[in-house]
Design a protein around this nucleic acid. Structure first.
Lengths: 208, 208
DNA sequence: ATAGAAAAATGAACGACGTTCATAACGAAT
DNA sequence: ATTCGTTATGAACGTCGTTCATTTTTCTAT
């Protein structure tokens, strides 16, 4: 096997991979994770059923790729919302952006948390990286609110705040747990940010 | 059909229902929702495969029954943790109890949020009642912290706080999203409660 | 150009799943 | 003993993800 052959093969495989991810992304966006079926996917991609398994080890791997793209879009949404003003405003803007993203792309967003790998399967490093980048978006506002804290403490705090916002959004959009009217959910998020920001300012005062 | 027959039939059916729920509960507790299989369930209950569908319309209905029991145990755990002392202490105790329950009964707890009904299927009223009771546990501490608020506002706030705690616990235990070391997760929860309680006290001051 | 070897694509087949339904087993009344 | 309405049964169905023997394509060497 010479170089040209290897490249051609890798190229074809890469093209198929991308096409499958594109289609799967669209399917998950419109019908949710449960709507993703190997046979439909192959039909939509115009390839054989077995071809999917030449591009990916299994559907879980494909789903992780789709989820990585969702994470990237979520990152972009948070970045777009970031306002370089007062920290509480920035935090509120990003929380609103998170809720807005979850509402607009609910099936894709939900897929991030619905999907589970088979027991014992390790999380691929490239996926762990993608989700870790999410939390770091809160670092700048937190640094402004708590100039005294070191980076490690800030990172932990970023995770805590992100998780709290996620919880309000997740349960708020979860009709089986707590169907929350949209207006009330907006209000809940505002209240949460207000309470947390007030708490952070007291922390800050306590440190000085 | 006379009364005795009808009663006997209903009785047998009820017995089978309870037995199936018992076994499903045990299966979910040890192997998670994904471990619940109709054939294994029938084998463990010593009944025919089809008998399951004489007791329940489908497995979703059975899962809702299992989840309702989990909700009841969670309620009991929160009640046991409730301390009738200072509000912040009560809130922290209940948050810890939530985390502790999720850790101890992780597969069952996870099943509460993993399970989705088929699209368009309404949430049964008895299930909605069971989950609504959860939030109300926070009402007493909140009434202490914010004596000025009416019951509706308190209920909304209870949902917000519960959701925030849930978010920290859910993402903290979710290895695919953010594997958090146990000690750090304990710490995150403490910080969250501290921040929220501080925020609530400022709200309270602002109202007076 | 052509034969032969190597690689890749194919889709029928497999096993597991939830659910259904024709059939069998049962019990009560005659 | 016979009938008849109920209930239980598990083989069978349709769907799913995944595999792998076979076919098709692609490349190499003559």
């Amino acid at each position: 096997m010479n170089e040209k052959n290897a490249d051609a093969g890798a190229d074809r495989r890469t093209q198929l991979r991308d096409r499958l991810i594109d289609i799967a992304q669209e399917t998950v966006a419109t019908q949710g994770l449960a709507g993703l079926k190997a046979r439909d996917l192959a039909a939509a991609a115009g390839c054989a059923l077995g071809a999917i398994y030449t591009a990916f080890h299994d559907l879980d791997e494909l789903i992780l790729r789709v989820n990585a793209r969702t994470l990237a879009r979520l990152e972009a949404a948070l970045d777009a919302a970031f306002v370089d003003a007062e920290a509480e405003l920035a935090l509120e803007a990003m929380a609103r952006a998170y809720l807005s993203f979850a509402r607009k792309d609910e099936p894709s967003w939900r897929a991030l948390f619905e999907h589970r790998l088979p027991p014992g399967a390790p999380v691929p490093a490239w996926y762990a990286d993608a989700r870790n980048r999410l939390f770091s978006r809160l670092d700048a506002p937190l640094a402004q609110l708590l100039p005294g804290r070191d980076a490690t403490a800030r990172a932990a705090l970023a995770r805590t705040l992100f998780s709290a916002v996620h919880g309000v959004v997740a349960l708020g959009l979860e009709e089986k747990i707590a169907e929350t009217p949209p207006k009330l959910l907006d209000e809940q998020l505002s209240v949460l940010i207000r309470l947390l920001a007030a708490g952070l300012m007291m922390e800050s005062a306590r440190l000085i």
